[in-house]
Design a protein around this nucleic acid. Structure first.
Lengths: 142, 142
DNA sequence: ATGTATGCAAAACGTTTGCATGATG
DNA sequence: CATCATGCAAACGTTTTGCATACAT
């Protein structure tokens, strides 16, 4: 019921917003740039939706905790993913851009301990591993 | 002997390069944006050094492993720090911008294990904790 | 009917680049 | 003296914003 998510965020239910949310929900890629979303909108749609609107809506969704914005070390485009409320970190392939999520409770726990030791009130954290996935011989990666 | 570092990087020893390196070495802030460096150059100097040069030099230093560039999740300006060859991660205060470094072997080890489990050749990683340092009552933070 | 959202174009931002000049080895 | 580095201004890619119009409630 994605329309409720929009309404609960205090936002009016508009075509751009429902479409963008649906794209985030149904796209095979969980991590998309604003341009990724924009390109999909251009493709499967008649009514024009401006790139500026995509940015605006994604920013609003972020403020509403509906999506999470990442700025991976590339420093280039931000990527957005639907917030499924299951915290996770990321492995990013430096060759293909492929992103895999993981969660490790030992690391999480250590972070809390380290923060505590430094008198640091932990609000958020980001852990990203950069490297390359070793392809299994027969598989073609994209 | 910072001039050797520059020479070893295959770079000519020029005023901008020695000054920028010295700023990185002697500034009380270990983590500086290009603009931070630029502003210091403007202040304590007569001969103009262009912001473009600061970016160029920092990028060259990065390629020579003299400095490390970070793009913290802010997505705004990159920050540069001298590479002391002691890997560490960062705690960033979301209120003051203060940065504290830490290193935790348990986390490092877990990362290697996770990468291995996923058939991921680990090249680099970035862990940043975001939060607030609890001030001790008498201390004025800056 | 009111207020909010949108498209468009232009601006803003951090960073990079082309080019003619200047300094280094 | 050949090469590399620099300053300047202009380009760049991403993201934001001003404004007049259009839509949701």
């Amino acid at each position: 019921m994605n329309k409720n998510d929009i309404k609960n965020a205090g936002l009016k239910i508009t075509l751009p917003r429902t479409k963008i949310l649906k794209i985030l929900e149904t796209s095979e890629k969980r991590h998309m740039t604003a341009e990724d979303v924009y390109r999909i909108l251009l493709a499967d749609d008649k009514g024009t939706i401006a790139l500026a609107t995509v940015y605006r809506v994604l920013t609003q969704f972020e403020a509403a905790d509906l999506v999470i914005r990442h700025n991976f070390e590339s420093g280039q485009q931000a990527v957005f993913e639907l917030n499924n409320n299951e915290h996770h970190d990321h492995m990013v392939c430096i060759r293909t851009g492929k992103i895999v999520e993981f969660h490790d409770e030992i690391i999480e726990q250590r972070q809390r301990e380290i923060a505590k030791k430094h008198g640091f009130k932990l609000v958020d954290h980001a852990l990203t591993l950069y490297g390359e996935f070793e392809e299994s011989p027969k598989m073609n990666k994209q």
